[in-house]
Computed example of a mutant assay.
Amino acid sequence: MQETAYAKINLALHVRKRREDGYHELETLFAFVDDGDRLVASPASRDVLHVKGEFAGALDDPFGNIVAKALSKLKHVPGWSMQLEKRLPVAAGLGGGSADAGAIFRMVERWGKLPDNWHEIATALGADVPACVKSETCIGTGTGTDLAPVYNDLAGTPVLLVNPRVPLATGPVFKAWDGLDRGVMPTGSARTIALAGRNDLEAPAIALCPPVAEVLTALQATDPLLARMSGSGATCFALYGSHDVMSEASERLASAQPGWWQMQGRLR
């Protein structure tokens, strides 16, 4: 079996308050790009995980990887020899690990079926994992695990992902948030929410990782519909009205900043 772990982006991310359990109350609009990490599973006597790809070296302990944890939590017979090609940067605001885990859930569903408590299992693995299981545009509330549908009028929109190749851990960014509630996330279609929304983690992310501001400035100069940071950074995205405009923007950025990572795609 083969599966793509679709890159997750937050078209909007409103942080409302710190919770007593140490997490934060969020309102977010999840969306997914039609590209990402790639997984291939074949039958084996026991579960084995092999990691390759550009960002494989960023995974310190592949056996403690969220993919291995997801495999251990979901029933599948026989074991699976899993090849994971890490094409998404790690600690990048793209839900890379969560997307990988979500892909495992979809593979198990194709193999047989998911357990009735799959959402509970996914939540225990990480706040982004439940959304990554379906990898469909949706609204997340609570810690991001309470999901609701939204009218997706952005499907097929060209998107460019750009990362300055600087890892940025989620914890410190949330810790640096100033604690100010800047208001509810707008309602409406995905496009309406995205254009009227914001990412409350941009300012603390930039304070910790100034290259984020450079990426945003560069993307905003390419005539996008929207340019914003995803998640807790450092990856930023830009949405475009046409593939040609997106492709031209990608070429310009690659010429000006050849060290930056890029991925082109469309929203699912």
Rank of each mutant, 00 (worst) to 15 (best):
T143N: 15
A213C: 12
W177R: 02
A70V: 00
A207P: 07
A5K: 02
V184L: 01
Q257N: 15
V48S: 10
D200P: 14
D200H: 08
A127F: 01
K75M: 06
P62G: 02
K73T: 07
P211R: 00
T235G: 10
W177F: 12
F174R: 08
S255G: 12
M263E: 05
K52C: 12
A7M: 06
S255T: 02
T157S: 05
P224G: 05
L239G: 01
A221K: 08
N163G: 14
K86C: 00
G265C: 07
L39M: 00
V212S: 08
W111C: 11
W118H: 13
L195N: 11
E20P: 10
G265V: 12
A190Q: 09
L59K: 12
E54T: 15
M1Q: 06
L225N: 12
G53F: 09
M185N: 04
E3D: 00
S247P: 06
G183R: 01
G265S: 05
E85N: 03
T145Q: 15
P62V: 02
M82T: 13
C138W: 00
T137P: 14
H119R: 13
M246G: 06
M246W: 07
V15D: 07
T123C: 08
V184E: 09
F55A: 02
D146L: 11
W111K: 14
G93D: 00
G95H: 10
G188C: 08
S247T: 13
V162P: 11
R46T: 10
V150E: 09
S247H: 01
H14V: 05
A101I: 00
G231I: 00
P89R: 00
V150R: 05
E248F: 03
V90H: 11
A207R: 14
D34W: 06
E85Y: 09
D21N: 08
P167K: 05
C138K: 07
D128T: 11
G64H: 09
I9K: 12
L168V: 06
Y23L: 07
R252T: 15
V245K: 15
A58M: 08
M263C: 15
T222D: 07
S98W: 03
S72A: 06
M246H: 04
R106D: 03
D34Y: 14
I9V: 13
P130S: 09
A68G: 11
K73P: 12
V129G: 03
V40F: 08
L195I: 14
G140D: 03
E202F: 11
